[in-house]
Write a protein that binds this DNA or RNA. Structure first.
Lengths: 240, 240
DNA sequence: CAGTGGTCTAGACCACTGA
DNA sequence: CAGTGGTCTAGACCACTGA
């Protein structure tokens, strides 16, 4: 059962994880103490501790002093949503990717009420509107707003055929981000840019990132229905 | 600078994390080796290793033998998507919640091709179709499929005005789940159930949960655009 | 009070890999 | 080849908390 190439603590972790996931160890059940496990595996306590700490971090165990380690009861469900760079993701599914800018300007406030509210009162805002293409088909309209005070370097960048998101993710560290996912009928501007009828169903992804208290950027991407999906996962096996 | 109550390795971790997030340490930059850090903090190498391993797991560092540890270049960002019980969430925003079943049956396979494919070849499937209401307005159509072999107890439950999801989340432990989020035009059946025109924009949430290798349930919820949103977050308030 | 987990030490051997 | 990270040992002291 021990897969080769696994270190001892990984082996211990995998064995206990397997017993939890298979249901052999049930939620709330106590697992052996570190002392018992070191006797069982014939190793130092640090090695057992490393395995159990990893399971604790992963949410599979709850550990209480004096009481012991217990199989965690499934809690509030939170899943992991991977948000890769759009260009890389489209390339990864075997399609060609392109971005084309429609408009770019600098203004005192975002010209979109929701964006302006999300970004707060910043000095000046770089606004970039563009379209993402997969295999030559327009799949998403993007309106991005960047706080120039937080990202002065962006003024010298050329976003004619490179999406500002790719540049931002590589160059600007942010500490917090919030993504809002909804559906909507395509409004006039987006429908026109995408070459579809007004009212076409779209997946709307709005993301605000900030750094400390400063807004960095706000972006709204409208994907034509059927061209894009978000996947969130929970669990160990299917990760990645 | 050292916050009280933090262990030494947490302090080391927090200091390096802070320098990365603030931008003092830039992506690709090399950080001191474990040997240099143990000299700087006057501690054992294991303590430094624990701090750097945690940052590595968190995706903030990349570690290469012989080369050293480097600030990771941000790639795929992973955010946390909370998936609360729909009824509780609607109540939390001050609206009344209701669920009404439309149809229920047991069949050998899911009558929906995508659902059948997602669930795999299970013996028999409980199919429940219903509508979720907020303040008396229909907001979502739900089609749920449950693997009866994995959840035999569900046969005795009454889902006339209680959504099966609420029962499942309380009673059935699952080990893995995957949520797919897309947008679509409402198909005929859903549009009819929701009392809107066919083709109305919808947010589509499909979730498959399983336990080990056994499918537990597959559900497709179609929310009318504007009635529901998903929020994913990343940031300092992440640990929860 | 005593068992448990949390952390830390001061070493060790090794695999890897870039200079 | 030599520096680095990966892992492991055999101890230690402590805080916590349930019996």
């Amino acid at each position: 059962m021990k897969p080769r190439g696994l270190s001892l603590y990984e082996t211990i972790r995998a064995e206990i994880e397997g017993r939890i996931l298979s249901g052999a160890l049930k939620p709330g059940e106590k697992i052996p103490s570190e002392l018992e496990l070191m006797a069982h595996y014939g190793c130092a306590r640090m090695t057992v501790s490393k395995a159990l700490s990893a399971l604790n971090t992963a949410g599979l165990l709850e550990r209480r002093k004096r009481a012991g380690s217990f199989v965690a009861r499934p809690r509030a469900v939170s899943m992991v949503l991977d948000v890769p760079d759009l260009g890389l993701e489209i390339a990864a599914r075997g399609q060609s990717y392109a971005y084309r800018r429609i408009a770019q300007s600098i203004m005192a406030r975002a010209d979109d009420a929701h964006a302006a509210q999300q970004m707060g009162d910043v000095g000046s805002v770089l606004t970039i509107e563009g379209v993402h293409y997969a295999d030559g088909q327009a799949i998403a309209h993007e309106a991005r707003y960047v706080n120039l005070a937080a990202v002065p370097d962006i003024a010298s960048q050329d976003f004619t055929d490179t999406a500002p998101g790719s540049w931002l993710i590589k160059h600007i560290p942010w500490t917090e981000a919030e993504t809002r996912i909804t559906a909507a009928a395509a409004p006039r501007a987006a429908a026109q840019a995408l070459g579809v009828a007004r009212g076409a169903p779209c997946l709307v992804i709005e993301r605000r990132t900030w750094r400390g208290n400063d807004s960095v950027t706000f972006v709204r991407q409208m994907f034509l229905a059927g061209t894009y999906e978000l996947i969130a996962r929970f669990g160990s096996a299917r990760a990645g």
